[in-house]
Design a binder for these strands. Sequence first.
DNA 1: TGCCCTTACGAAGAGCGTAAGGATG
DNA 2: CATCCTTACGCTCTTCGTAAGGGCA
Lengths: 290, 290
Amino acid sequence: MDLNLARTFLTVVYGGSFVLAAERLCVSQTTVTARIKSLEEQLGAQLFVRSASGSSLTPAGERFVPHAQQLLATWQDALRNMSACERKEPLRIGAETGLWQPWLTRWLSWLKLEQPDLHMQARVGQGSMLLDQMENGTLDILLSHQARYRPALHVRLLMEETLVQVRHVENPEPHIQTDWGEAFRQQFELAFPAQHAQIETNVGQLALQLLLEQGGTGYFRSQVVAPWLASGQLMRVAGAPEFSLPVYVMTRKACNHPQLQTALHGIGQLVRQPPHPHDSAVPASDITHE
Amino acid sequence: MDLNLARTFLTVVYGGSFVLAAERLCVSQTTVTARIKSLEEQLGAQLFVRSASGSSLTPAGERFVPHAQQLLATWQDALRNMSACERKEPLRIGAETGLWQPWLTRWLSWLKLEQPDLHMQARVGQGSMLLDQMENGTLDILLSHQARYRPALHVRLLMEETLVQVRHVENPEPHIQTDWGEAFRQQFELAFPAQHAQIETNVGQLALQLLLEQGGTGYFRSQVVAPWLASGQLMRVAGAPEFSLPVYVMTRKACNHPQLQTALHGIGQLVRQPPHPHDSAVPASDITHE
DNA sequence: TGCCCTTACGAAGAGCGTAAGGATG
DNA sequence: CATCCTTACGCTCTTCGTAAGGGCA
């Protein structure tokens, strides 16, 4: 029995439906189905009554609730107790400016859920500055678009995002340039040798907000702009090349923080998940929240 | 976190070494290493001090013991509570005579460990009789060398054992014939048309015991006789053909006993494991225990 | 028809065993 | 140098996501 099953069970209980639980747990709905099914088999009893309006507990499910709570509570307790005597030094996590949304934020909340008592320190900044900190030993783990290979560092390619050029439907001006890192800059200058941006920024969300309000053209991560492309507010610029934007996660080999592996595992999980409904379904509020 | 990790942890604690824990859990020793390592990573603390004379708890490990116990106890409690209101009808398990050792015995003890409160009924007998019971609906799950395909039954090939002919090193007489089932009998008569056995039995272990004490020749499962072949008490009969002996597990599709899946899963696990050290290392005592 | 859940299936990852190597008394 | 544990590697099974289907208002 995996404690994930108990957690999934309770999430369904609290939410009242598999769909909602899936969202809260950041997994697909079929995964919730499979987990509940597995739990039901192990317990030898049906836990939920499925209906068109959601799922409600059977008597057996009702009786399992306190046990599930106890299991999770015991585990949390154990985590607390263990980390209590461990080094109090925080796990220092860095992310390049373009990456804190949504990856760093999701990552931190995942970590907080998983290790409630973990002391962590999050920094957002220029890639090269953070890379220096990694080498200094003043940063433990870094999310960046640029990799720097050193004997003391461990580099892993997390994923490849795609940058596409989009424009406001009505007004293609001004040209807004986002600093997506050194590698992108080089590629971009090769593709558009004579182009000079009217506006430059180092935060994608800022550029996007400007573009939506004032009009303009610029490069953005395809996942991020997908909802506006769908709604017709933005459109792809015909003929503009796409760029690939790798994301690396780096760690110091010398870092022996006990939760380093946990953190690495967590970010690995997150990037494999599809864009969360919340992230794309309510684009307007996403922007205003910044 | 999987509860297996907690169970493994406690087994190591009680036994004092990874090797011993591996034996008790019927897994390889590297598996124990991996599980403990995983647990240590999730807890962010080292649990054992490894030494040449075994493993002892670190302070952190010491503190984790009660939590691990609590986790397992809670889960056992949940199982008890769930099955308490379930049908009281026992899960009826059958096995053909040749299969109760070692498979049925291991299976039952695994089930008892996994589902302490499961009410079960074990029957050993002639394959055809048990097959009839399956069709009658008076048996839920059956381990047999013969398959019978019926719409109401679900058949799965569990594994293929190999029968080899062996003889006592000094004395090849008498010829002892074990009834390994219908399929084997047919194959055997094809291979040895004129042969008539001096002694017939329907229990392999009985034949083996006779053969070891009195001398003789006969067909046995290769895994079972391996230790005596190695020790030189027995030898293969040159030129004698090998026979393949399939093992099927059958279930009634109509059976909705809540623990049926658990049981199926368990036997699937067991057959994938190598012959347990105990089973082959101490052949003499194995025999006398019967 | 829309919502909620299940089934089928392929791909990625986890778990486990074998074989070989390091440490420690 | 024997015992106990770890590492490396390959295989298998599990798990998860995508796509498609069923039941119920």
